[in-house]
Design a protein around this nucleic acid. Structure first.
Length: 133
DNA sequence: GCCAACGTTGGC
DNA sequence: GCCAACGTTGGC
């Protein structure tokens, strides 16, 4: 099972919206590298939800419940379905991630504008631990 | 095919 | 509000 990180501005669509909806179609990605990551997602994969801009923190864990399919509104692009699993007991901020040397290789750091990024297993485990779970 | 100009994302 | 990092567009 692979792990991912997906960004959203909380004012636009945040963890609370995801929980309210019980899941969502993750569409609107218009970046080729991010599209490749979406295409690589499989049902059962888990993804962090990262609140960009105002929050700058990983706030929760989502599960991919359907792999990539063409976006009906933009067939050249794809969407996946994600559903909330659980919020992190404590958000892990970008500042904390940057301060942890073991997380320096994360795509989140290396390419800050990438909205859908892979997360290595050991990075996933460490962030979950930092969240106090 | 190159590259300048421009637009967007997102951290600071 | 500013700017760095990227991506895209369009003139040549």
């Amino acid at each position: 099972m692979a792990h991912w990180l997906m960004k959203s501005e909380p004012e636009s669509y945040g963890w609370a919206d995801l929980v309210r909806d019980g899941g969502t179609e993750w569409d609107g990605v218009r970046n080729n590298a991010a599209r490749l990551h979406l295409k690589a997602m499989k049902p059962g994969d888990e993804a962090f939800l990262y609140h960009s801009m105002s929050d700058k923190a990983v706030v929760g864990i989502m599960r991919v419940t359907r792999g990539a399919e063409p976006d009906p509104k933009a067939p050249d692009w794809v969407r996946v379905r994600v559903e909330p699993v659980e919020p992190l007991p404590r958000p892990v901020t970008l500042a904390e991630i940057k301060a942890e040397p073991k997380l320096g290789q994360m795509e989140l750091i290396r390419q800050s504008r990438l909205s859908v990024a892979p997360v290595r297993d050991e990075e996933w485990a460490l962030i979950v631990e930092m969240a106090g779970r």
